[in-house]
């Protein structure tokens, strides 16, 4: 009997000893210490960036599809974004439903953005152009452009997310320090590497928000 109790106690303790199932990236996003709410704007962004990479690169597709119906709007929005970038055409119907019916603007915005990446559901995108929120309407207009485009924007995004960023590298740019190198795309789709111009001429870089 004593042996049985010891075995059962041991089994109960296993999860806390590191034997628990690893937490999925979506679960980690749900449990963020600083979720993407206004009050956390300047806090915890490194974790939000890292998890976005992890979700887009590695989250289970079925879990992402289920997350479109999650109670947490941040999780729904992130799942919508990831499914568009992953090119999951099976999620188009649900994304179109979110575009029309989700009460949270950020979910409608991500859902219509993803329909643009998938180049599907033009009627839902057209409806979103008339969305009451100007941000959703703006993104819907861009998604409508993408419907007509030959470029696979989802693939470009997948390729960009495939280069992982290390947590310790985030925010390392400081006055007095060498400028960290990065690669981005020019408007004609060619790769641009900062190091090709560094050390040759003075450079100004503006990191923009769309309206900044």
């Amino acid at each position: 009997m004593t042996r049985l109790i010891l075995i059962l106690t041991g089994l109960a303790l296993l999860p806390s000893a590191g034997w628990a199932q690893p937490t999925s990236p979506l679960e980690k996003y749900r449990k963020l210490r600083f979720p993407a709410r206004d009050e956390n704007f300047a806090k915890g962004w490194q974790e939000r960036v890292a998890l976005e990479y992890e979700i887009i690169n590695a989250a289970d597709l079925r879990a992402l599809r289920n997350a479109l119906k999650d109670a947490d709007p941040f999780v729904r929005a992130m799942a919508a974004r990831a499914l568009g970038i992953r090119g999951d055409r099976d999620s188009a119907d649900t994304l179109a439903e979110l575009v029309s019916g989700d009460k949270e603007y950020s979910v409608r915005l991500r859902a219509v953005e993803s329909l643009g990446y998938l180049r599907m559901k033009p009627e839902a995108i057209q409806r979103a152009i008339k969305d009451r929120n100007p941000g959703v309407s703006w993104v819907a207009k861009l998604a409508a452009d993408q419907l007509k485009s030959e470029t696979d924007h989802a693939r470009q995004l997948r390729e960009a997310y495939a280069t992982p960023i290390k947590r310790e590298a985030m925010g390392t740019a400081k006055v007095g320090q060498p400028a960290p190198d990065f690669t981005a795309l020019t408007c004609d789709g060619k790769p641009f590497k900062l190091s090709t111009v560094l050390g040759k001429k003075p450079i100004a870089i503006y990191f923009a928000a769309y309206d900044g």
């Binding site: 993407a36 709410r37 962004w45 939000r48 960036v49 950020s106 960009a160 997310y161 280069t163 960290p180």
Partner: peptide
């Protein structure tokens, strides 16, 4: 597109 440079330079927020 993935916000890599933005994170490197500490300007990424991904937030409301």
């Amino acid at each position: 597109p993935a916000g890599y440079a933005s994170a490197l330079y500490g300007v990424a927020r991904k937030c409301l």
